[in-house]
Every structure is written in C-alpha cells, then in structure tokens.
Simulated assay, not measured.
Amino acid sequence: MTTSTPPRAIPGGVLNVITPQSQRLVMSRRGSTVWRVETEDPETEKTDAYAVKVGFPSETHAHTALAPSREAYILRTIRTNVIHDGEWAEGTWSVQPWHSGPSLYSKWGPHRAPGSSAVPNFMDALSCAAALSDLHRAGWVHGDVQPAHLIMSESGATLIDLALARGRTVPEGVDFPYRGCLVHYEAPEISRSVLESGTAVPTCESDVYALGASLMISATGWRHVAYPDEAPREVQRQAIADGPHRPVTIPGELGKLVNAMLMPSPADRPTAAEVCDALCLAL
C-alpha cells in the first residue's frame, strides 16, 4: 500500500452502483485514493472485485480531481466491462473491474537478482507490446506507460491507469492538459516539451519509448537515463532531454529490440505492432 496523503473515504455515490462486502486501501497519493472493493452476489455467492478511484486536488495539480471520470470515459470507449463514475465534494470517482496479478516489475524481479543469468520471458514482453498495440489501434495513446501500469495475469498483460491518455475527443468537463508523466519513463521529446512549455503531446512513439524503458528497468533495475533520485524534476527531465540513454544490457534479441525502442528520434523507433512482430519472430 502507498500512502502519502490522507485517504479519501469511498463516496456515497459509489454505493448506488456496488455494495461493498469488504474494502482495502491500496493507495493514497498525488490527488488519488484507490480502494480494492469486493462485492458478493447473494444469489450466486459469487465474489467480484473492483477498483474504486477517488480523485481530489493535490498540492501541485488541481486536475487530479477529474482523473477518475476522465479515465472512466476512455475505458468505456475501448472495453466492454461496466465502468461507473460520478462526482463528489472534492472531485470525481470511478468504479471499474479490478485486474489481478503482479506488475511487470514485480514479475521480473528474479531477473534483477545478483548473479542471475535468466533471460526475461519473451511472452511477457510480447503481451505488454500487444496491450499497447491494441490501445493504439483503438485510437488512444496511453501517455503514462510504466511497469506498475502493466498488470501480468495468466491471460496476458493489461494496461491500467488511462487517465492521461490522448487521441480521441474527451468531454471538456473532465479534460485537462498533459503535463508529462512519471519522469523515469518519459521519452526525450516529452521531457523537452515539458521543460520548454509546461505541456507536451504524447504519441505512439513516446509510448513505445516508455515501454522500452519499462522493459529495461524491470529486467535490469536500471532507469533508461542516469540522474540523482533526489534531483528536482526539471533536472531529471533535462538529463533525459540531453541524453543519451544508458546502454541496454538485456542479452539477446530482446535487448536489441529494447535498444531500438529507446532511439532518440521518434521516427527511428519501431511501432508497438512492429515490436510484437519482432518478438514473435524471436520466440
């Protein structure tokens, strides 16, 4: 569980769409509280799990209050699952199916162990690239690809946390500018634009870069660019903008592919679909 701000309780509006039998706090930080809520059908005794996201203004960003409803709108355009959202006193909330499984970073933990010579699973990398390719094909750019947003289950990878996604029209009432994502996975052009203007336009190419950086850190423990953890965001972004990225030490074909995904020029990177094709050929 991650907590850095007082958690917000589940709003009353949520109780109009689900009846919690149990709830567990998962995260509360940067203007977002997330609960894992379980419900039970009294007739079938079947248990379902949901993610309840509660948005509110953070110390640095007011738009976090709108994020749950913005994500809910995007999810309804690409998934058949029932997604609910609404407003509460400090912002918006959403209810969506819970996706079970470890993150990519957690699943690849053994590869980062000292002395490990294991090669990361190609099928894991392929399912991550396929999830991103499917999103791009649906007309959306994720804008915040990172290992924690790649949930690995037996059926493959699921990309979660789409609140920052761009590509198709979003209702004005829940929309807000894109001001970058978690810096550890930003492409150079995104960091450069945020430094210059305060905003950026994420692209399919910047998503591919972020996926490459996610695969790299999950397999090796190293960020794509070196900078001090305690450095201000501006300093971190400048290091990314100036480059170059660290050498990719993942062995074999996967390492070559990740290196291509981290090319400085967006035009030189493969598409997510091409990453899938290359991984299929390497299997």
Rank of each mutant, 00 (worst) to 15 (best):
P6Y: 03
R8S: 13
R8P: 09
P11D: 07
Q21N: 15
Q21E: 15
Q23C: 13
V26G: 11
R29F: 08
V34R: 00
W35T: 13
A51R: 09
H61N: 08
A62V: 06
T64G: 00
L66D: 00
S69E: 09
A72F: 09
I74A: 02
R79H: 12
T80E: 15
V82M: 14
I83V: 14
D85C: 10
E87Q: 12
W88K: 06
A89V: 14
A89P: 03
S94Y: 01
V95W: 05
Q96C: 08
G101W: 01
G115F: 13
A118T: 14
F122V: 14
D124C: 03
D124P: 08
C128F: 11
A130W: 06
G139H: 13
G143E: 06
D144K: 09
Q146M: 10
H149V: 07
I160L: 10
P171L: 01
L182W: 00
Y185Q: 03
E189C: 03
V194K: 07
P202R: 03
P202V: 08
T203R: 06
A210S: 15
L211S: 09
A213D: 04
L215E: 08
I217E: 12
S218L: 01
A219L: 11
A219N: 04
T220W: 02
T220K: 11
T220M: 11
G221V: 02
R233V: 07
V235W: 06
D242Y: 11
V248N: 07
I250Y: 00
E253D: 13
G255S: 01
L257W: 02
A260I: 01
A267R: 14
A273E: 15
E274K: 15
D277F: 07
L279H: 10
C280E: 14
L281F: 10
